[in-house]
Design a protein around this nucleic acid. Structure first.
Lengths: 342, 342
DNA sequence: CAAGGGATTTATAACGTTTCAATACCCGCA
DNA sequence: TGCGGGTATTGAAACGTTATAAATCCCTTG
């Protein structure tokens, strides 16, 4: 081996090896090397082995730009990130799950801001038109989400976190929020609570309807009173939520049970209880959805139901890979079920 | 203009316009169009205007892959994301800030996992060797961070969140954790507290040393007792931190003041107080660093110092842009100062 | 009027990959 | 010997862009 003085090419050692480097090292043509590395069966077994060895030895890695230019495939997956304030680890957990599922696949994740007030289609259009990704992931899905409609029309691979109400099937991953709400209500009823309260996310999101249905139907089934806090959503400033909750507590018949969809609401609720002189566990109870271990460290302890967001991230990414590989959308659905409350 | 029947090219309407499309529409050569759009002063003013108009009308957007292949510049910025569990909005806030600063620049952010137990250099090496990005951002910087060393050697643009102790200057953005710790101590002393406690992040991080120094020197200056909780770090499972704190409280002279570096620790500390029958505000006080508005909704209310992570994200991204544009590293530093505690 | 020269524009060659169409090779068989 | 026919390999073109070097034009000047 030694130093290949005869190679006298501009491509010297230290440069990034290309197909040409490998071709020269093996004596085959560039086209052959390309095919061999792609595992093309028309290339002889022995050749494939020789090329593979040389590629590995030289540390050859295909150039993304060249491949992308040639094939039109970007090897990129875009995640639409909502840029509203968010307090607990939603983004971190989902993103960790996604990168976990994508490790070793050659796919890169790019993060694209999805400003909630703005046109939610704009970033999607940009990605489609300028061919910036091979697939897309997003959250906070709406019943007739325009992004879903557009992507289905364009036949562009995506997985939504959250279901829609379109009749055409598309890949989605969701948490069974109806079951969560139902279980939360039942848990509170079991504790003897009979006037329940719930703060919902914005009306437009599908999971809001699931939560509402689970909450309302379970409360009715138990024959107890319930109210959905008016005038605020989960995305309202916490100050406003706190005010609404406090005001409700000062009414003639304050709630004695709270279903909280997020950790923040749970904290706000705890604070509202404290501020109105009520004692958790005595005057009222809370059951909350929990996506992080933080509630292990809250006093008073409150009942929680765990939603595994890292698994969610892994799943949406894995499903997108399958969709991009050509699987039909029909089978690509996954509904996570709440563990029993604890 | 009407329909250009004479154009009879394979590039029909509906296809993504390229330089060739614009060239044909204007009658100039591809090279001229490229130059005109790049604002090359050697192209006549009138030509530049005509080309710009046509490009806009046709909706021309340069192809990233082609540009990348030709120039070697990727138009990508990589963010090294630590995949440990994290509970409050660090990732979300920093990432939102980054995308905010990058909006409209044409740069995309890709997220690369930075597994804490693993070789922290591996993802950096991959990015360098395979030319996957033009610049890099990362957090949890160490005193002699090997990533910083490698990137400086390679002369690759980056901004670290956190300072190092290298003598060669490099761009960084940091929060003045020493000032935070000092202020927290002073605040506790002002409340009459005289036995302070602190849980530190892992020894390897630079900001750990800043915290330690601020804490220790302020406590000494005030002539009070202090302890750094042994055996656990901020990254320890919360259960272990809780145990260590609870145990300390059961000793002969339990702490009466806590400096908490994160929101989670603050919650754990509150829980430890509650579990040992101590009352916040009576038996002990807490001053905590706060990166989200969540503490407005914690009862008991605790003193906090705000670290604006979204601004941090904006700043590291903005600084990286300047570095990539060729600015020398010397001036590219920014130290965020804590607001007065409240 | 020819030559010089500044101002514009352009043809062309890359960047590294994949793929189409064509070539070279080898074997068996007429 | 020559030829069909599979097998294995290859040359060349193309993806869309930028940069180098050369060409064109037009105007000034000796």
């Amino acid at each position: 081996m030694g130093n290949d003085l005869d190679a006298g090419t501009p491509t010297d050692m230290g440069e990034r090896p290309t197909l040409r480097t490998v071709a020269q090292a093996t004596g085959f043509a560039v086209a052959t090397v390309s095919r061999a590395l792609a595992g093309d069966p028309r290339i002889a077994e022995a050749t494939r082995a020789k090329v593979a060895e040389a590629a590995k030895r030289l540390g050859y890695v295909p150039d993304r730009a060249a491949r992308r230019l040639r094939t039109g495939r970007t090897q990129v997956i875009s995640l639409l990130l909502n840029t509203e304030h968010e307090f607990l680890g939603f983004t971190h957990e989902v993103l960790s799950g996604i990168t976990e599922a994508l490790a070793g696949t050659g796919y890169a994740v790019t993060v694209v801001p999805d400003s909630p007030g703005e046109d939610r289609l704009a970033p999607v259009r940009t990605i489609l038109r300028n061919n910036l990704a091979d697939g897309m992931l997003f959250t906070r899905t709406e019943a007739f989400d325009p992004r879903v409609r557009l992507l289905m029309e364009a036949d562009f691979p995506f997985v939504s976190h959250g279901r829609t109400e379109f009749t055409t099937p598309h890949p989605w991953v969701d948490f069974d929020n109806e079951a969560f709400a139902r279980a939360a209500v039942e848990r509170l009823v079991a504790k003897g609570r009979s006037r329940l309260s719930l703060v919902l996310p914005g009306e437009q999101f599908t999971f809001t309807q699931h939560l509402r249905y689970g909450f309302v139907s379970a409360a009715r089934a138990a024959g107890i009173e319930y109210e959905i806090v008016a005038g605020v959503t989960l995305d309202s400033p916490t100050r406003e939520i706190a005010e609404a909750l406090t005001q409700a507590r000062r009414g003639p018949t304050p709630p004695d049970g709270y279903v909280c969809v997020g950790e923040v609401t749970a904290m706000v609720t705890l604070a509202a209880l404290a501020d109105t002189g009520a004692v958790h566990g005595v005057d009222a109870d809370i059951v909350a959805k929990r996506a992080s271990p933080i509630f292990d460290n809250i006093r008073p302890r409150i009942d929680t139901v765990f939603e595994d967001l890292r698994a969610t991230g892994r799943t949406i990414a894995g499903m997108l890979l399958r969709r991009m590989a050509g699987e039909p959308p029909e089978g690509l659905n996954m509904l996570f079920h709440p563990d029993p409350p604890r």
